[in-house]
Design a protein around this nucleic acid. Structure first.
Ligand SMILES: [Mn+2]
Ligand SMILES: [Mn+2]
Ligand SMILES: [Mn+2]
Ligand SMILES: [Mn+2]
Lengths: 251, 251
DNA sequence: TAGTTTATTTAGGTATACCGAAATTCTAAA
DNA sequence: TTTAGAATTTCGGTATACCTAAATAAACTA
């Protein structure tokens, strides 16, 4: 079989299809895909037909879109590229975590496999990126830390920040400023009335800051892992199988 | 004026036009440009018209193609990108000097200015790449070491290798194997009859190797700087002016 | 269930960057 | 000077990846 010439558009389509399923636990629809890619619905219809021709997705008209094993494998390799690049930019080139997403979005299509593996080696084969998103290994295995979104946790729960959406650079700068980062220990105090957000308490190595109010947008961008748990469980084959951890976002 | 949306094709066209002039000291023709880019002559005619529309080249039908100041500026920025990337791949990611050209060819179109300047800073703002090609600074200033191609030098001349064409990876591996690298001191013994090549003597820090025979392809790929001279002269403005050093190759 | 709204696909069209073949222009030999 | 041959451009066409507007299918709603 031929090696499937994948354009950078194909790569972005399968990546977005994968990313949606990674947290929503259900297949993506045509219009959501269009929104996330920033293209017209009609463009998606046409591209999905081509992706199907290449055996990267399963799709019947008017139904949601599924990745095939081949499509999942390509998606995982793009996710690996993206997250390794983000990690590299922060660790080796002094980028801040709010600057890396857009740069990685371009680079992920331009670098060779050789480049990726060199980078991974130099970084010591990291398993998560600067925002806590898990990095699949070269075989597509991905280690996920069981986590829950802050807004889904009961008052009194204590957890360590395991993942932060990188969608909004400004929000990332805000978190930085407030001393909120990966592995910061957080106490969920409770939800404020009338959608004002959540009240949390945080303890960092440096300063034991007092209570903090997080708006709704901030709250849904944070995932917490139960204190006492560590990474390494819930391994997933690139050839399919159920995704064990819902509610994950960002690339 | 609008910022001239430059596609990666445009970038490659101006880069190749510049590179030709950098060593041939005369403007490139349509068919040579086509050969170097690996496209049909008709494609070049069409693209040159578009480059002219964008004010990147001067051209009248059936004549050679010149860069405008704007085109030269873009070309120098692409050359800077390419050569910094090659240097980075070798110095920071452990690439060998025969592996970097193709990777840089892709990356040069994908990285941001921010990435380039971070890289340059991390490398200590190098002025030449792994093959000795000069790296323009962010303003397009380029420092060239006065050099001559080995096949143009008289017997008895002693020089330091200042530039090696990166065109053929296999030739680079051969040079490596023979102990020939940047700054290797070389004595031109003389030309062999019937186009067999050149006889040279080399002295490296490690071993004082005996005489060596270089075939014609190898000989024309090496540039020598006179011993005792150093880099830093012959600065060129991006806004034009005569190129002072002919006979340079590669990117 | 019939009608209305929404989601999705189809149809027709654009821009970019290529191609081969035909026509044109330039050049250099006779 | 004429004219063959070489270089270059023009012409018609392809592939990719978008778009808007129109048609259609599916999902609600009354
Ligand atoms: Mn992308
Ligand atoms: Mn990202
Ligand atoms: Mn290039
Ligand atoms: Mn190069």
């Amino acid at each position: 079989m031929k090696p499937t010439a994948t354009s950078s558009s194909f790569e972005d389509y399968v990546k977005v299809i994968y990313a949606y399923t990674e947290w929503q636990d259900k297949p993506i629809t045509s219009s959501v895909l269009a929104t996330r890619l920033g293209v017209a619905n009609s463009s998606v219809s046409e591209m999905v037909r081509k992706l199907k021709d290449q055996g990267l997705v399963d799709h019947q008209p008017y139904s949601p879109i599924h990745l095939t094993p081949k499509g999942l494998s390509l998606a995982l390799s793009m996710v690996r590229r993206h997250r390794l690049l983000e990690t590299y930019l922060v660790n080796e080139l002094g980028y801040t975590w709010d600057e890396v997403h857009d740069e990685a979005e371009q680079l992920e299509h331009a670098v060779s496999d050789h480049f990726i593996e060199r980078m991974s080696a130099k970084l010591g084969h990291p398993f998560r990126d600067p925002h806590g998103d898990p990095i699949p290994d070269a075989q597509g295995q991905i280690a996920m830390v069981p986590s829950h979104r802050l807004d889904e946790l009961d008052p009194g729960h204590v957890g360590r920040i395991s993942r932060i959406s990188d969608h909004d650079p400004e929000l990332l700068r805000y978190f930085e400023q407030q001393g909120l980062g990966l592995d910061t220990e957080l106490l969920v105090v409770g939800q404020l009335p009338f959608g004002a957000g959540w009240q949390v308490g945080l303890r960092t190595a440096t300063h034991d800051a007092g209570p903090l109010t997080l708006g709704p947008d901030a709250a849904v961008s944070l995932w917490l892992a139960s204190v006492g748990q560590h990474a390494g469980c819930c391994v997933q084959e690139p050839t399919g199988g159920t995704l064990m951890v819902p509610h994950m976002s960002g690339l």
